[in-house]
Nucleic acid binder design. Structure first.
Lengths: 197, 197, 197, 197
DNA sequence: GATGAATGAGACTTCATTCAT
DNA sequence: AATGAATGAAGTCTCATTCAT
């Protein structure tokens, strides 16, 4: 994961790209997508020119940040897809999505864009994400841990919605937990409703 | 409801204000809060100066749009709070929130701001919203239609999240319905889970 | 002086005109000539339309304020021009110009414009001002109270400069006094230099 | 004096900054401080963005112009403060202030602001100016060339006033000279009144 | 005559993007 | 490759002026 994805870059250039991506994720998460590219350059300690050398437009940078975030989700999904308890795996994944650091709505944005933007780099990611989610979901449904009447589309919408809901409760952990519990309970089949709280 | 809220304005001025608010709601819903004031002026068929005469800053315009939206929700909540079937009233309200025309995420934004911005005009609205939601929620919980372990904070977060979730499924009515059903089921107490397809 | 200058106005209209002029003088003096016409309308308690009915442009309003101020100076000069002690009369006048309430630089502006703008209304005022100043100056020079080598042009420039100088010292009465004394001493013939402070 | 004051700028950037400052001085002098930033950009042959890169607000630009002008006065004062004839030095300085090119009232504005605005950049300049003026003034007073009853405050006010006075006489050199002579005579002790004119 | 809502040119300022160094 | 100065379109907001009420 820490090896150059884009080939043919000098070591320092690739380091800059990685740093920019990380910094951009932070800045966009905390100040929203309208944060200026200049601010990101400053935060990354590089010149503005360097940002545009690596990401030809601001949108490309935003997209790269989304892809990065989604990539991590996909990795999580893959690792959990072979866990022994399919039900547990599914719910652990759902929670882990929302545990991502920073603003949850940033994740919501990333997920939201995955289903909408069909840009070059997004296309492959979308397929990978669908595959990963599908594996988790179907396995969990097969063992009766998740209701049968939903598919990937619903799962994605619920992830986005849950991220936004949790984001709105930001600050109050109790509220966050109870809110998420409602959604997770909604995902369980009739007879397996959680008894917590 | 169709009478001047802001007193002392001429009839024509108030018509312009109402028109602007409606147009702004449309434009912000479809192009996001970063839509330009100029665009709204053009869409409303007035000069840019007229927008700023009625709403001294862009933020004031956004706030007015939010307040308008919330006001409608509050009205809905009030009317339903005296319905005979408290459980039905609650779920009808929840669905009606998401039925509001335009982009659902616009509603999410309005709701989200209600809990954050404590601006002058917002303050009163927030109280009214809380009161309206509380009446609906408590009554529904009392008759056992809604789980007891959530309060207004969770309800608000879920409304925001549901709006976003439904927004993400935008276009596919089936997905919208099933996604919403999951969240509504999550709100029901253990034994009253919906059995719909 | 308190009778309508512009004929054919209703009593209330003329009152509005007078009030506007007074208010405009205040506002321009305290906030500068870039104060908005709207502000003046508000301060005068009339609608913006009324301002433009009486003064077709902002510049016309500014000009009217200048003329008003100059008119008062001219009146002062006339009254003093028949005083028994010509020297005393001259210096009393010079000081009285700077005693006008409000910002001194406002007076400087008015005086400055008198020599520059040759607009309709200004033309006559300029002649009156010159006549008044000339009477005072020549009489004072004749009795040896003021040096002989200056004329109206120099006197006007010195009035403008003194107004600005005093304005700069604003707040510190001692500095104001000593500064003015320097200029007045400069106006006296060699042997009559003041011996104050 | 012609070396970069603000460090860390490329040669070309500094050239632009210097050019902008010079052009801004001209434009503000001839059209007043309300001249538009855009006009200055055009006159300097740069894009509007360049103006704001060097001076983040219009006020910052105005301030920089003031500081520049004051800096020149301070330099003059310093050079003259070690001249053999202290009296001559003082009067040469006073005249040289008014000889600065462009509109004299621009100088008046700069001097006027020196005593009012205590902005960051102004603070140091004000001290330097005071120090420079004080050296000239005290030395001239010590040799009996200037009356003893004035201090820096009065000197500054007189410089401002003289600039304005001369500005008002603009165009007529004779009037300018005689007006200035009056003020300079006022500065001399009783027995040393000029005999010119 | 008085009012104040409407207008739109123009001001200041930001920011994505380009390009000379 | 990296830098950051330059650019100018576009955005928010102000204000003198007009005109329907």
């Amino acid at each position: 994961m820490e090896t150059p994805v884009v080939k043919g870059l000098r070591a320092d250039a690739w380091r800059n790209r990685a740093r920019l991506l990380a910094v951009a994720e932070d800045v966009f998460a905390s100040r929203g997508p309208s944060a200026s590219t200049e601010d990101i350059a400053v935060a990354a300690g590089v010149g503005i020119g360097t940002v545009f050398r690596h990401f030809p437009t601001k949108e490309a940078l935003l997209e790269a940040v989304f892809v990065e975030r989604l990539q991590r989700l996909i990795d999580d999904a893959r690792q959990l897809s072979s866990a022994p308890d399919a039900g547990q795996a599914f719910f652990i994944f759902f929670r882990s999505v929302l545990d991502q650091a920073h603003s949850k709505s940033a994740i919501a944005d990333a997920l939201a864009h995955a289903g909408i933007d069909l840009k070059d780099s997004m296309a492959g990611v979308k397929e990978d994400l669908n595959a990963g989610l599908n594996a988790l979901l179907v396995r969990a449904q097969r063992v009766g841990a998740v209701r049968d009447d939903i598919g990937i589309a619903e799962l994605l919408a619920l992830l986005v919605g849950a991220a936004r809901a949790v984001d709105h409760a930001a600050g109050n952990t109790d509220v966050e937990d109870r809110t998420l519990e409602v959604i997770l309970d909604g995902l369980r089949p009739h007879s397996r409703r959680s008894t917590r709280g």
